[in-house]
């Protein structure tokens, strides 16, 4: 167990293992995304109340779910880097922020496009939309703080503290649906108890959620590999890698 944990802290090991994971994970993810999108767009029946505009659910819900989960990943990586001073954890934390911000942006934009035909307006100040907007600000705050420090080690620790403080916001996002009356429909997937969505619509949605999680993992690993190369450019193993590459 602990040897695995220590290996995670080693740049060459992580670089090599992430390369071999990505070789399979990335094509599989893109395939799942493609299948899920075509399935959701063309092969599912329309919703009896919202008609065809509900098809946006297949990208809106996964993006929102993964954007939220991404914040937890970032905060966890931040906690690990603060406690064990692990270099790879602060690379992971710093790489989470732009991906999470991009997914939050996707969730907001698709939600707004969905709102126009459904509610007749582009933007509604309801609890969940507002919380997603706050989440976007939290991500952007972490990115801005990281960029403001010249000393990158200190930047990583400062961002770790900030992301841990920001997790206070996450329960509020979840609870906001109960707290405020809003136009937003209550969450319709429950893993405990009966789901209110028909299986023919549920399966593509679950596929898309899985695909978005996998995409987050891929993007995170890809960013981390680039960042590792940049930070370790003067070390022996990177030179060896280059020579092997050149041959």
């Amino acid at each position: 167990m602990w040897t695995f944990f220590h290996k995670l802290g080693s740049p060459p090991w992580l670089y090599a293992i992430s390369g071999s994971i990505l070789k399979y994970l990335l094509p599989a993810t893109l395939l799942a995304l493609g299948v899920g999108m075509v399935w959701g767009l063309l092969f599912t029946p329309p919703d009896f109340r919202q008609g065809d505009s509900y098809r946006i659910i297949y990208i809106h819900v996964p993006a929102a779910a993964v954007a939220l989960a991404g914040y937890y990943v970032m905060a966890t990586a931040g906690a690990i880097s603060l406690i064990w001073k692990m270099k790879m954890a602060d690379i992971a934390m710093q790489c989470c922020a732009p991906i999470g911000a991009a997914l939050t942006f996707v969730a907001l934009v698709t939600g707004s496009i969905w709102g126009k035909p459904t509610w007749g307006t582009w933007w509604v100040w309801d609890a969940r939309i507002t919380s997603m907007l706050i989440l976007l600000f939290l991500y952007l705050g972490v990115i801005a703080l990281y960029e403001a420090y010249d000393n990158k080690a200190a930047a990583a620790r400062a961002c770790a503290v900030l992301s841990l403080v920001g997790t206070v916001n996450i329960p509020i996002i979840y609870k906001s649906v109960d707290w405020w009356y809003s136009l937003h429909q209550p969450a319709s997937i429950k893993f405990t108890g009966e789901s209110s969505i028909h299986p023919s619509m549920l399966y593509p949605l679950l596929l898309m959620i899985a695909a978005f999680y996998a995409l987050f993992a891929c993007a995170l690993l890809l960013r981390m590999r680039a960042e590792i190369l940049d930070r370790e450019r003067r070390t022996g193993w990177v030179r060896k890698l280059l020579e092997a590459d050149a041959v």
Binding site: I134, N169, I172
Partner: peptide, 9 residues
């Protein structure tokens, strides 16, 4: 930028 989101609640 950092603390305004935390002020919102």
């Amino acid at each position: 930028l950092l603390i305004l989101p935390l002020y919102m609640p």
